[in-house]
């Protein structure tokens, strides 16, 4: 970002503030819509279980991404690289540990019946 001239600083700050406020509102509205979809799908019982589960998974992932993007200000570009690496690594470990746990225990469970 280029440095603003001093006389414009107040104006730039106000613009900055408005921009950030809009970002939060966007995040809020997107999350709200996704939440409504999620609960709607279950409450009105409009699809079979597989479709419901897939919808739930997708809306949850989208909402997490939305909150990362607009509430936590994490995006793929213009980010300190440390943070992004960390988040991706965490996702990898979470997938390995969570997925592995479910997979192993399901496998054991299946072989006990």
């Amino acid at each position: 970002m280029t440095r603003e001239a001093p006389e414009d600083e107040a104006g730039a700050r106000a613009a900055d503030a408005a921009h950030e406020r809009r970002s939060y509102m966007k995040g809020f509205l997107v999350s709200l819509v996704l939440t409504l979809i999620t609960f709607g799908v279950v409450a009105f019982d409009i699809a079979d279980r597989i479709t419901v589960l897939v919808t739930l998974g997708l809306t949850a992932l989208l909402q997490i991404a939305a909150q990362f993007r607009w509430f936590l200000h994490i995006r793929l570009r213009g980010q300190a690289r440390d943070d992004l690496q960390l988040i991706l690594f965490t996702a990898l470990i979470l997938g390995l540990m969570g997925g592995g746990t479910i997979f192993i225990l399901a496998n054991l469970d299946a072989r006990m019946h």
């Binding site: 390995l96 592995g100 192993i104 496998n107 054991l108 072989r111």
Partner: peptide, 21 residues
Amino acid sequence: AVLSFGVWMHHFFTMGQSAEL
């Protein structure tokens, strides 16, 4: 460091999961 997260099951090979796993 990364591989170390992908091997934990070798501590309980005999617990009864499938041979493929």
